[in-house]
Amino acid sequence: MTAELLVDARAIRKEFGGLVACNDIDFTVERGAIVSLIGPNGAGKTTFFNMLTGAYTPTSGEIVFDGRDIVGLPQHKITALGIGRTFQNIRLFGAMTALENVLVGMHSRLRSGLFRSLARTPLQRREEKDGRAQARELLAYCGLSPRAEQQYARHLAYGDQRRVEVARALATNPKLLLLDEPTAGMNPKETIAFVDFVRKAREERGLTVLLIEHDMRVVVEVSERVTVLDYGEKIAEGTPDEVTADERVRSAYLGTKPVS
């Protein structure tokens, strides 16, 4: 409990007109942890993600990421500070190849702008070459076969699209990786493999992982801390065991029967 906090969000509130999507939520993530955010549909999980990445600005509250207040920063600056994400419904750049998708993820790490690109300076060419090599490595790391690298993302099989999306998020070189329902549409075998992958990536790349997940087996299996949202309120927080034993969580989310 003494580990340094990577995310320290205090009294985060988001209102859409009269609807309170997030009601004064306090939320912390320790550096290096794997944390799950769960809750029924419409509980405000994705809204919370969108505030972390800067897609939404909170109505009130503050979010300190890695020692910096990030509320009000534009998205690309927050990404550059080290927050990478995937989307609930895969949102790849369909008419770009898998490789190009990952290269876009590197945007804030690459430097060549208009004039260097026009002049094709040695710096620009080296950067492109290194970038491509890194992108290939990342795709391989996420389990995409080299044959699929040059295919348009639109034409990839579903599982491969998921892989490319994770590779693209990793390409932003994140300290915090946000995964929004990453196992949706995966079969049990794929899900197990994905859980292993998340653990491995955390160790090897020094990540902190925050995931939104509906599959309770995944949540219990992979996460060290779980936060439960319901109707924009935080109703429970703790280890997976604590949370699944919580009476309010059961009635709000898991149903009344105990889970095995």
Partner: peptide, 14 residues
């Protein structure tokens, strides 16, 4: 091209 394809995703990628 990324912006053309998906503006929100492009912003989230930096």
């Amino acid at each position: 091209i990324a912006i053309r394809e998906d503006e929100d995703a492009a912003a989230a990628m930096g």
